[in-house]
Simulated scan of single mutants.
Amino acid sequence: MDYVTLDKLIEDLNLETIYCADNINKVKINKSDVNRPGLQLAGYFDYFAYERLQIIGNVEWYYFDSLDEQVKLERIEKMFSYPIPAVVIARDLEAFPEMIQFAKEKNRTILRTEYSTTKFVNLLINYLDDVLAPEITVHGVLVEVYGMGILLTGKSGVGKSETALELIKRGHRLIADDAVEIKRVEDDIRGTAPEIIRHFMEIRGIGILDIERLYGVGAVKKWEFIDMVIELEFWDENKEYDRIGLDEEYTEILGIKIPKLVIPVRPGRNTAMIVEVAARNNRQKILGYNAAKELGERVKNEIDKRKKDYHKVD
């Protein structure tokens, strides 16, 4: 979504409605920024970010309360003449009669929250960042393995769900099976399951499993950042697979590059164990150790040593 309607925001954040405009289901909020209208209450309306939610905290409230009655009317009338989405009053402070008066005249919404201003602003920005984040849905399975989010992809029937089930038996956690909703949150991508299928898994020959009921709450998780993509594919005898790991491959999801591995699947291969090892190896790389590069360096040093010994004998 590239916007959230005001009525949806009020419901999700459990805000008290002091005065409700008649168009809250049509008011669209498409930015995660907010505005504290201290300067506007002081009479400065140049560069007024009226398209943002207006947050009134202690400072704004007590400053406005100190103004002359006529000045109050002028400032609030001018502020409410702009098409602001809504005014939110923090700390359960009272709404001034002048605000309610012009909210009715200009058809603006006034809301209230019990949270402190700073806490509510953080809550609101995090909420807007989440609901306004770029989003896609991909076919795959998302699991947490050793604290890392692993997205398993591949053709239907290749064994993604069976691999995930074996990982769950080994103590890892399921986030999503079959459909993974992915959002970009700043410079990370986060995966979750659609609400309707959360914690459920399909295994061919058995049917639908409720992983939370079968294995307990410790076997599932609501969301996880995606650290690696592992594509499972049927073993192809004619294909040359990477046996060293020096050539690192990446895939791009919502503009973010994610390490990717292609793992061939055939009878006799313990795919779940390979995924575990891949997760551990990727963690080592993040921490600065690359086994393939270390082996390559050892081979290079050995070759250089033999060359020196050969020249000495010469």
Rank of each mutant, 00 (worst) to 15 (best):
L13E: 12
L246F: 02
V88A: 00
H139Y: 10
E144S: 11
F102V: 02
K104D: 11
K260D: 07
W61C: 01
D236Y: 08
K31L: 06
G157T: 10
N126A: 14
S161E: 06
V220P: 02
R91E: 04
V277Y: 03
E202M: 03
Y310M: 12
D12T: 12
A86C: 02
E248M: 10
M201I: 11
I253M: 06
D187I: 07
V87D: 04
L132I: 12
G191V: 10
I10R: 07
L6A: 08
Y250L: 09
V4K: 07
K221W: 02
R266P: 02
I84P: 00
R204K: 12
Y289S: 11
E94Y: 03
G57C: 06
E252D: 12
P85M: 01
R198P: 04
A219V: 09
F64T: 01
L209V: 14
A95V: 14
G154A: 13
E166G: 09
C20N: 13
K160V: 15
V262T: 13
F102A: 04
E202V: 05
E240S: 02
W235E: 11
V71Y: 03
E11P: 00
I303E: 07
R36T: 07
E224S: 14
P37D: 09
S156A: 15
K221P: 00
K26E: 15
H139C: 08
M79Q: 03
R36C: 07
D187W: 09
A179N: 05
V180H: 00
L53P: 00
L174E: 06
L151E: 01
E195A: 14
Q40H: 08
E240K: 06
G140L: 09
R36D: 02
L174N: 01
H199M: 09
N14D: 15
R184A: 12
F96G: 04
Y310L: 15
Y82P: 01
N238H: 08
G140R: 02
G216I: 08
Y115P: 01
D309L: 15
V145W: 04
Q284V: 09
K293A: 11
H172I: 03
L214Y: 10
R52Y: 11
D12Q: 11
V59L: 05
Y82M: 10
A133C: 04
L128N: 07
E74M: 13
I18W: 05
I175E: 00
C20A: 15
G191T: 09
